[in-house]
Design a protein around this nucleic acid. Structure first.
Lengths: 353, 353
DNA sequence: TTGTAAGCGTTATCAT
DNA sequence: ATGATAACGCTTACAA
């Protein structure tokens, strides 16, 4: 049986209230005679006492928990934004619970249910598509604050990037490099991230005066394997594209492999651009030109918003719409630096959003 | 204010005990008249009642929480084993809390403290080195079951792979391919994972009759950037290695970039082998030869052990030592398939441990 | 400055 | 089959 506050009280010869007053971080400015405090502290360390979190939370009506829901933990992009959330959460005394839905509706529903049941103080929903169904009423019932990262919402606060603008820039970059047939590797229609990136791609193509060729838009699912298959399909077209824009870096890596497998080379035969700028991308050869999204900052901003909402005295929630800038990181895979020296680490950013 | 069991009781015209008996999953075989049950159920959904987890846990003395501690969330290997833990945990009614220490002792300590405070029922410590300090006494006090994954322990259960054997095999593979000067990119001395892999490397070299050249062993830190720098240093040696064995795939990717940056090619000029077989590795070109570790299975086995310990009627903990097999996945980067056809996806495994 | 005692929302024991 | 009620371990008025 674990040590309780009563054990400490007895050991120190004081009442439980006194123990609570020295043990409890939030109330430790309460006046306690230094001598008494000393005695209690000694008993606490000697017995190895730790206050029971469930009991505290039950009373405090605050779980001190933040739930993070991501679609796919194996995509290095999500851990990075989760890290941002985590840092701010910890700094503010919250503990985070990390859940991956694997883009499965049942898993998403059961996690959301479990998190609500745990009375999380805040919920950070990162990316994902239709699989996430979160009714305002259920979170309202338990006064849970919610922020969406990288996905839109009619009712909750959002932290987002300008996917349309960033994708338009990336496509325009390729256009400016002389490419007219540019393939786009998407990823379903359920995720707004991808529908927006697709829209940016289409806008750029149309703005250039060309018409969009549906054949050049193929579907992926964010994984390397599917990026590989998609690129293969694009390059086997009768009139194949000379450049490919993948909706994320993992698919871009798959595409890069497919290009090599067909005996072609990047960027000479096919130019390639990704999206996310995950750590690996700078170390591919050719180094991947991609859109950098400051994933960690997304998480930081989201959690900061949550902290404000949770601590709001009036209990009212502000609906925020926060934008985080992106930058096109021009490395080697797009062909823009064909004649420059090596190393994709320090390259110029040509455009921001 | 949230709906409590009393609100439901009032609404359904029954006592709280009755509500508890129909709401409580673990006691729902308790006899309740179908008609009454119906009425209660109706009230529950109508009011949107969810039992307060803190109150339940306080009474039940079980948090239902499993803590997972990893050294570095941005390394795709850890999420994979975490996934295995998560799956088994969820299937058994546990919720997991995921924490990344970033290999920082203070972060590790504060997370461990927070987890113990939350009275986690189980703790899965994955990898990491000296930064993790977990005294048996503190976990014993709160009857927390612990499993270490991929790191040794004198007192706790472990789920491990044979790092020495796997590294020996990988090195022998390179030796058999005719390489005599093989570089090894390590990663500090604090992580036993790496010291063991280093030992395997050394054993293979010595078994071949050669002597180990300390110059060929350079230190990394598991990241691409440092793998890049380490390979650069190796290849600028007066008598550079013709093959490099990196202690993980991320460093191998960095090494691959460094090799390309020096105008050399893999595997013709320098053969390369990694460790972990993260998803990306099959899609590098040349595809990376690496040691596959069934990361998810490690997590599954760890959590299974934990579930057994937690549910043990006698409350006693068995100290288990579980081994999970590894396989050397021969792809292109080692040069063994130089004259075979493309595609590193389906390749023969030459050795297991 | 310290102690007493009333809850927080459940579950489980004991009556009925 | 159902209802009172006593815990679980803690924080915080309120009293002393």
């Amino acid at each position: 049986m674990a040590i309780t506050i009563r054990d400490v009280a007895k050991a120190a010869g004081v009442s439980v209230a006194t123990v609570s007053r020295v043990a409890n971080g939030s109330a430790n400015d309460y006046p306690v005679r230094p001598e008494t405090r000393e005695r209690v502290l000694e008993a606490i360390v000697r017995l190895g006492y730790r206050p029971n979190d469930n009991a505290r939370r039950l009373l405090l009506k605050r779980s001190g928990l933040i739930g993070i829901v991501v679609p796919d933990i194996s995509n290095p992009y999500y851990p990075e934004v989760a890290r941002g959330v985590e840092d701010v959460a910890n700094a503010n005394g919250f503990t985070v619970m990390f859940c991956s839905t694997d883009r499965m509706p049942e898993k998403a529903a059961s996690y959301l249910e479990a998190l609500l049941l745990k009375r999380v103080d805040g919920l950070v929903i990162i990316g994902g598509g239709d699989e996430i169904q979160l009714s305002d009423s259920s979170v309202a019932t338990y006064d849970t604050k919610v922020v969406f990262v990288g996905r839109p919402s009619k009712s909750f606060s959002t932290v987002r990037i300008d996917n349309v603008g960033a994708a338009r820039d990336a496509t325009e970059h390729l256009l400016a490099l002389g490419h007219s047939r540019i393939g786009f590797i998407a990823a379903g229609t359920s995720s707004t991230t991808v529908t927006e990136r697709r829209r940016g791609y289409i806008q750029a193509i149309e703005a250039s005066g060309a018409t969009v060729d549906d054949e050049l838009i193929v579907d992926g699912d964010f994984s390397e394997a599917v990026g590989h298959a998609a690129a293969q399909r694009l390059l086997r077209l009768p009139d194949p594209p000379t450049a490919i824009f993948a909706a994320n870096d993992r698919m871009a890596l798959g595409a890069m492999a497919a290009i090599a497998d067909l005996g072609l080379s990047v960027p000479q035969d096919v130019a390639l651009v990704g999206f996310d700028d995950v750590p690996m991308s700078a170390f591919l050869r050719p180094a991947l030109t991609t859109v950098s999204v400051a994933a960690q900052e997304l998480g930081v901003r989201a959690m900061e918003a949550l902290v404000k909402d949770i601590n709001a005295a009036d209990g009212r929630t502000v609906r925020r719409r926060i934008r985080v800038a992106t930058r096109l990181i021009v490395r080697e895979s797009c062909g823009a630096t064909l004649h420059s020296s090596h190393g994709g680490l320090a390259s110029p950013a040509v455009s921001s959003h």
